[in-house]
Design a protein around this nucleic acid. Structure first.
Lengths: 329, 329
DNA sequence: TACCACTGCTGAATCGAATCAGCCGCATCA
DNA sequence: TGATGCGGCTGATTCGATTCAGCAGTGGTA
């Protein structure tokens, strides 16, 4: 403990404490004294007791991360990776908890984290959407990750889905597509990804004097993508470019196209959103606009620990990850 | 704080503390006193200060979970979900850290966790394998998750890959397959999943007087699965049952079979390992032996917090998740 | 009556740091 | 010469719990 270090160095614990907290200059400690203390620290392999420190300072160098389901999700869990790494860089550790969407469990988790004096909380959701900040976080330093609360001016980190929508269409247009259909729609009212991607898609088409040629409605799953696309094809549906709302859906689309003998990208180009591993597994590799999950997680933590951050939503760009599903020009 | 509660109830903090720590009987506190204190707690909305408690008790009701990469992994991240939920049930919270395989970062993370007096550490790996317990965890209560250290008698939680191998083959045999090939092999020396599955596969075949008809060598990726299987088929390879070492690989196998006009399960049955979401996305749905990730994570935490646990490896059963890739009898 | 046991409670020390309010000695200045 | 300032350090308190040792009061026993 600190007292041992102080004894070994022949100074008071007060002095040792100042030195170890980087207040040596401020407190005008003589360089020789600083050296003695540092030597004692190294000698004894001293490591501060965090509980003792926290008891006084009310800070723990620990942040909370509550989510509904991000660990369970296919690859949104990378948000955790990003958060964990960013926290480490800033000398913090991440306490995580998953509510599975149960508000009561969420309340409990938040309470437990606050009891442990976390320095802040990242509130994350599996899918990009609007949320209401949980009661328990009112007055607590917090950052929203992959979600936004329209009622509060909180720091919030989300993917730039609208920019992603523009990028997706730009890729198709560059490949010569003019008859662009969109597959998928978002049935969840709070979900933001769908509408924003759609807005971007329309905006980019508009720059070429175009609009969406048509919409194949279905939810974002493989089977729905397959079935809806099959029906569309059976009804004589045709296009030279398809924008799928996510990769899983696109997998279903691939299956439907294959069954009806259409070749990607020869007969039509396909782009999608997510940039998940799945995109890389499909044949041909699916060109997909990547959700920057790792970056989102890291950024949320950095903003949480940045005392100068005064809130507001930050949209992280989504980049096209090229595959072979867009016809080369 | 506790002093306020004690004051409100008209007792000493000592008494209040005993009551709140469930030592009322042991200390022979009068029921009336207990009631008064509980009322005061409710009244004031008292929540204990964990740092203060930890300073005395050296326990934090927090456990560490260090891994190389489990959050980043496709669905091994469910281990986190399981760990988080089990911890909550036992009134603990999980501090997580990912090293990304960097030993120095791993050392740092462990050190930081220990500084924070975690009550124990779960050491997890993305893929099932043997490991050496990190130096920093020597003498620390810890459980290995998805890995084992042959040199130490530590509590260790792994999937029962051998049983999984038997189950996979049993499924094929029940469907009438007799000419069973295995696709995939494990190039990583420490990896345990491959050899154990293989042992189970051979053992089950042996009960019917059979052995593996042949092995298609490739690593466990979609493209490798596709290419190796294509080569095998081109060389005249035939079988009535295929065991794929994991789902991604199986996806490549599906692609190769489709290209050469073979139908699953009409021409041959396919089973696989992992039970990932991907298995459900393939057409036909892939019959796969499930890795019980959530359960593994939960069990590791329970064993960590079970003072009566005296080490040893526990293998969690892997169950067949039926799809449509095995020919109905 | 003196001793003891038991019930029901409390005072004070303790955990390991952070930090406020000085204190001592020496140089400087009027 | 005495006041002032500053460099360099420390004593004592504090954070909010846990816990050991012990203390009244009561009733039973020898």
């Amino acid at each position: 403990m600190l007292a041992d270090v102080a004894a070994e160095a022949g100074v008071s614990t007060t002095t040792a404490s100042y030195i170890l907290n980087g207040r040596a200059d401020e407190m005008r400690i003589a360089p020789a004294t600083v050296a003695k203390v540092r030597a004692a620290v190294a000698d004894l392999g001293y490591r501060p007791n965090r509980s003792a420190r926290s008891l006084r300072t009310r800070r723990t160098a620990t942040i909370g991360l509550v989510s509904d389901q991000i660990a369970g999700e296919q690859y949104g869990s990378s948000m955790l990776t990003g958060a964990s790494l960013a926290a480490r860089e800033l000398d913090h550790l991440v306490v995580m908890g998953e509510s599975g969407g149960d508000p009561e469990l969420e309340r409990l988790l938040i309470e437990e984290m606050l009891e442990r004096d976390v320095d802040g909380v990242v509130y994350a959701t599996r899918t990009a959407r609007t949320v209401h900040l949980p009661e328990g976080l009112r007055g607590v330093r917090s950052v929203l990750l992959n979600c936004e609360d329209p009622d509060e001016r909180l720091p919030s980190v989300v993917p730039d889905d609208e920019g992603g929508g523009r990028a997706a269409v730009a890729t198709l247009l560059a490949a010569g597509a003019r008859d662009v259909w969109v597959v998928g729609e978002d049935p969840v009212p709070e979900a933001t990804a769908g509408p924003r991607r759609m807005a971007g898609i329309r905006a980019e088409l508009a720059t070429h004097g175009l609009d969406v040629a048509g919409l194949v409605r279905c939810d974002w799953s493989v089977t729905e993508g397959f079935e809806a696309t099959s029906r569309w094809l059976a009804a004589g549906g045709r296009a030279d470019g398809l924008v799928c709302m996510n990769d899983r859906l696109a997998m279903g689309v691939y299956q439907a196209l294959a069954e009806s003998g259409l070749r990607v990208p020869d007969d039509l180009s396909v782009v999608s959103f997510d940039g998940s591993a799945l995109a890389g597994w499909l044949r041909p590799v699916l060109t997909s606009v990547e959700l920057p999950f790792t970056e989102l997680g890291a950024l949320a933590v950095r903003r949480l620990l940045d005392a100068d951050d005064h809130g507001g939503t930050e949209s992280v760009p989504m980049r096209v990850r090229p595959g072979g599903s867009v016809r080369p020009v």
